[in-house]
């Protein structure tokens, strides 16, 4: 697994994917957080970085799909998939190697935003006026949301050898899990089951963790979502043997 992980990280670094992802994420978030008028923290008057946690899930839909779209599609297209799968290494360790490489990139794009957090602490009028609990929770939530997106992206990549198709499917699935369940639950015809429908979506659990109370059920939800997509990836990955 670590061999694959190392190879993926190296290819992220050598193909500039890593730098571009991190830079684009940081530019986009800082524009919204510090410069654009409506979402600007400085004008908002509250000592928190909530706009970041509202924006990041949306930006991640694009960015994470872009990071993961090539992971298996490219191998399939160039044929290296065959060299890889005929080496003495299990399918799961190939998938996990690629998964954790993607996740590492997500972590490294989130990490620099701690500077925003520090800035807000320094700018706040009174000492300890920042809600540390909520912010920590939000960071954990964002991380888990990223983990879920990466799993979805890896899955989208394994089902096709076309990177563009993989990118589009991944964006759709991320968007679907992030907010479509939310919208669905407000429909009239789902009355009675609407809580359950909302519960299926990422947003419900993401908001719940953001409050700063870490509910085990939310953590289990994210772990299950990640496992589900890794498992689906493994099934499709093994489909060469069907």
């Amino acid at each position: 697994m670590w061999t694959i992980y190392k190879k993926e990280i190296r290819s992220f670094l050598s193909s500039l994917i890593a730098y571009i992802t991190i830079i684009v994420f940081l530019i986009a978030t800082s524009l919204f957080l510090w410069i654009f008028r409506d979402t600007n923290i400085l004008d908002a008057g509250y000592a928190d970085i909530d706009p970041l946690f509202e924006l990041a899930p949306i930006i991640f839909i694009f960015l994470i799909s872009a990071i993961t779209m090539r992971s298996f599609s490219e191998e399939k297209k160039t044929g290296t998939f065959e060299t890889l799968t005929t080496r003495p290494i299990s399918d799961l360790s190939i998938i996990l190697g690629k998964y954790f490489a993607g996740l590492t990139l997500v972590v490294f794009s989130i990490l620099p935003t701690l500077i925003y957090y520090y800035t807000v602490i320094e700018l706040s009028a009174e000492v300890n006026s920042v809600d540390t609990g909520a912010t920590n929770g939000s960071y954990l939530g964002l991380l888990m949301l990223g983990a879920a997106y990466v799993a979805i992206g890896i899955f989208s990549s394994v089902i096709t050898e076309n990177q563009i198709v993989s990118f589009i499917i991944s964006m759709f699935l991320c968007f679907f899990f992030y907010s479509v369940f939310d919208y669905l639950s407000s429909f009239e015809f789902l009355k009675g089951t609407n809580f359950f429908v909302e519960w299926l979506g990422i947003n419900y659990h993401y908001r719940s963790i953001s409050k700063g109370v870490i509910d085990t059920r939310d953590v289990i939800y994210f772990i299950s979502l990640v496992s589900l997509f890794i498992w689906l990836t493994k099934i499709i990955f093994g489909s060469r043997k069907w």
């Binding site: 044929g79 065959e82 060299t83």
Partner: peptide
């Protein structure tokens, strides 16, 4: 078996950016 066999597939797929 895979660890005992060396395999050069048709068209020799390689990671071109490595």
């Amino acid at each position: 078996v895979r660890s005992l066999v060396g395999y050069l597939p048709e068209h020799n797929p390689l990671y071109l950016d490595m």
